[in-house]
């Protein structure tokens, strides 16, 4: 039997210094609540007091907002406390996922170049959802507040790996930014 503890750098969890390079800042942020709601979108938004759930390349605004994940699923960020389970009256399934996803924020003109290392992210190809495979990981990627701030939700268990990737590709992106045509 083998002990691999030294082959894997110790996990830092949420406590980690930001990545700062050439005006690019990457940091872990902690929304206080993330709520998964499945069912008719209009009903889900009603339950979360939101008007719209953003897709790509829309820009989510403010502290509380909703992102679109599927035809019949949204995630509320910092929404109201909603009881887990089946909401019979509205036909909605609700699960608190506040701890399931780690959220990474990438800010600066290079942010888009870092993301393009791992996925075909194209402002010219809109999408109903923000879900996306990034370097092989299933993630949510959307813009927040401005065109140069991106948020990346990932499974908590993959935070270490994805952070390593972001460190690696921040350097690469700083050396060679992508051209944004629009």
């Amino acid at each position: 039997m083998r002990d691999d503890s030294t082959r894997w750098a110790a996990a830092s969890g949420y406590d980690r210094p930001d990545i700062n390079i050439n005006g690019l800042q990457i940091s872990v942020i902690r929304p206080w609540r993330q709520t998964l709601i499945s069912g008719p979108i209009s009903k889900s938004l009603e339950l979360g007091y939101q008007k719209r759930a953003v897709g790509w390349p829309e820009i989510a605004k403010g502290k509380n907002y909703a992102i679109r994940m599927r035809r019949d699923r949204i995630m509320l960020i910092n929404g109201p406390a909603i009881e887990d389970g089946w909401h019979k009256d509205k036909g909605l399934a609700v699960s608190d996922m506040s701890d399931a996803c780690a959220v990474i924020q990438l800010e600066g003109v290079l942010a888009d170049s870092v993301l393009k290392r791992g996925t075909e992210l194209d402002i010219g190809i809109p999408s109903g959802s923000v879900v996306r495979v990034f370097h092989g990981f299933e993630t949510f990627i959307y813009r927040w507040q401005s065109k140069d701030i991106f948020r990346l939700h990932i499974q908590f268990g993959y935070l270490e790996s994805i952070w390593l990737l972001l460190q690696n590709f921040s350097n690469q992106a700083s050396a060679q930014p992508c051209t944004n045509w629009r």
Binding site: W8, A9, A10, A11, G13, F137, Q155, F156, G157, Y158, L159, E160, S161, L164, L165
Partner: peptide, 13 residues
Amino acid sequence: QLLHPLKRLILEP
């Protein structure tokens, strides 16, 4: 570590 990334436990520390 990125060749076959593993999921990490919150209790790893």
